[in-house]
Design a binder for these strands. Structure first.
Lengths: 244, 244
DNA sequence: CGGCGCCGAACTGCATGCAATAGGCTCTCG
DNA sequence: CGAGAGCCTATTGCATGCAGTTCGGCGCCG
């Protein structure tokens, strides 16, 4: 099955499956990941699995041991907080770039579309969180695209690879929490504000809103941490450690 | 030579050598990198070389082709500019974190040391650029360390992997340019200002200075682009393309 | 009884063989 | 003479064998 780094390659398969396994907590954190056993378990050979190891190591999910082999990383609360803040900084820069580089109203059509759809979802009496998360991801993707910068895109992709740092990760898990509705309303308000700031070419304002928007995820995290059932819905929750 | 991801492993050797080759422009940009020929040339097998490919692809120096294989990335002026601006943003965040998280004056000792050494170098009638670059890298490294955040550290490492985005890259190549001395003085002024801002706990100011400090690299880039001999000293210069 | 050293096994990193594909070249046909 | 299709080769992705090392267990000595 040569000549194909595309989806369907063994390497891709191994990477996705391994990431899933890690997020699900099937692999004990801070413990050596066995190469051979995993190869059988995932149905791939050791060579593509090693490639997957390298990829996840670059993403920060695995850490290479000095003596060889890899361990699953664990994250302190500070680590998670930093990742979220960092995402805010990067998305802030993306928003600023978007504002500074906007050439025509037409470029905004995608973002406008998503924003309006989000408006509808949030306005419902009982918003469907899955819909919100999906649209939310779309919104953030569209915004980053408007920055027109590969460097920014890649940097954000790297940060978001961490399970908790993703825009929608913390929303999905907090279903049925008391302040759910409130947070959604605020988030959507910020979405609209960012859109307007970008449209008006107000880069600095767009940047600041994006940063604050990410901090909403921090608030979410605190809420989720206080709720056992919500925690169980959070992908990658087993990777968090209480003590430093 | 098993059980050793440490230096000396074939993978590490291949990665370093390959990066060097790319920076030197020995591999034509936007052209398929031959796996077999390179393996012989670097004296490693194809397996570790493939690992090196994956690493450099994550760093943004290589790009995976849809049909398999890799090509050396080329960078437009905008790409380089974005990378530098992004480094500024990230170092700005690092500086802010450093200011916000400083616990004692003692933590600053390393940074203070480097700053004073830089003072001496800059004060000389004919500053030795190599010394400045080395100390400059040290300064930036120390500042990032003070941020006390793995996420930031990794993000910056990713950006700096691009040849031009590195703090000292553009300084080293501009020897004998007219405004060399001026730029060094300004840079060092900013170094001192950042140190003071961090010491005083002024996160916002530290952040802004760091951003402006990175933009000095942009100015450097423009100068270097106007000078053929300076361009030849710039690592990775062959990767830049004039037209978009 | 505890610490130290040795031995074994398991595991990892590396090299290479194999199979399959994509692109290039040629040959043929319109 | 140009365009399309078919074959062929070069090249990549994958699987597996091999060798070396590191860690755990066990025995010995103090």
């Amino acid at each position: 099955m040569p000549r194909g780094d595309v989806a369907g390659s063994q390497t891709t398969k191994a990477t996705l499956a391994l990431r899933e396994l890690i997020f699900a907590g099937e692999l004990e954190a801070e413990q050596r990941v066995p190469e051979i056993g995993l190869a059988e378990r995932l149905g791939v050979s050791r060579t593509p699995l090693r490639l997957a190891f390298a990829t996840l190591a670059h993403e920060g999910l695995l850490r290479a041991l000095p003596g060889g082999g890899f361990v699953v990383c664990s994250f302190s609360l500070t680590d998670v907080s930093d990742a979220i803040e960092l995402r805010g900084v990067l998305e802030g820069t993306a928003a600023r770039f978007a504002a500074e580089r906007l050439e025509s109203e037409a470029e905004l059509s995608g973002l406008v579309d998503v924003t309006e759809q989000l408006d509808i979802v949030v306005a419902e009496r009982a918003p469907v969180l899955e819909q919100f998360v999906e649209l939310n991801d779309e919104y953030h993707g569209a915004l980053v695209e408007l920055a027109k910068s590969d460097a920014i895109t890649r940097a954000i992709a790297n940060v978001v690879a961490l399970p908790f740092a993703s825009p929608g990760a913390l929303i999905a898990s907090q279903a049925a929490l008391a302040r759910e509705q409130e947070i959604l309303v605020v988030a959507q308000h910020q979405h609209r504000a960012m859109l307007e700031a970008v449209r008006a070419g107000h880069g600095a304002r767009a940047e600041e809103i994006a940063r604050e928007h990410a901090r909403l995820a921090m608030l979410n995290l605190e809420l989720v941490l206080g709720s056992e059932p919500a925690l169980e819905r959070l992908p990658g929750a087993p990777l968090m450690r209480r003590a430093v």
